[in-house]
Amino acid sequence: MMFKQEVVASPSTQTPTSIRRFSPALILGFMPAFRHRDSGEVRLCRGADGQLANQHLFDALPAYWIAERDEDGCSIALVAAVEAGYWRSDGFWRLIDLLHPNLDS
């Protein structure tokens, strides 16, 4: 699959079966992202300036992914179909996947 910084797609999610502790080195290469479960569309997190972010930010998400904004127009809640996670290599990792990683052998 070709990686695009703006939008990436993940056709499936894996549900790991065992609980493991992982080294901090495992998180290298993980990029904060959000996925819309209905469409499978994944967006990397970006700051208001458009630069890739190192944390989960709502700034550059499509308007239809936003459920609520504050009085200043800043996004404060996402629609239920959007989940936080991380993009690594060629797949989306849900937060629960980090607790139960299905690592390459």
Rank of each mutant, 00 (worst) to 15 (best):
L95D: 07
G73W: 12
F92Q: 02
S75N: 13
G85K: 00
W93H: 10
S89K: 11
L95M: 12
S75H: 14
D90L: 03
G91V: 04
C74E: 14
D90E: 12
V79C: 12
F92T: 06
Y86H: 09
L95A: 07
A81Q: 12
L98Q: 07
H100N: 11
S75K: 09
G91H: 08
D90M: 03
R94G: 06
L98I: 12
A77V: 06
S75A: 15
Y86Q: 02
S75F: 07
L95R: 08
D72R: 15
C74M: 11
D90T: 07
I96F: 08
I96S: 12
L78W: 09
F92H: 04
R94L: 04
A84R: 12
R94M: 03
A84I: 05
L95I: 11
G85L: 05
L98N: 06
E71L: 11
R88D: 00
W87Q: 02
A84P: 04
S89N: 12
A80K: 11
L99S: 07
A80Q: 13
D97L: 02
L98G: 07
Y86F: 15
V82R: 06
G91A: 09
A81N: 10
H100F: 09
A84Q: 09
F92V: 07
F92N: 00
E83Y: 00
A77W: 07
L78H: 08
V82I: 11
C74N: 15
W87L: 03
G73E: 09
V82E: 04
D97A: 09
I96W: 08
A80W: 00
D90H: 11
A81T: 15
E71Q: 14
G73T: 14
L95K: 04
H100Y: 10
A77Y: 03
G91N: 07
R94Q: 12
Y86C: 04
A77S: 13
S75V: 07
D97I: 02
W93E: 02
I96H: 12
I96G: 06
A84V: 07
W93F: 11
V82K: 03
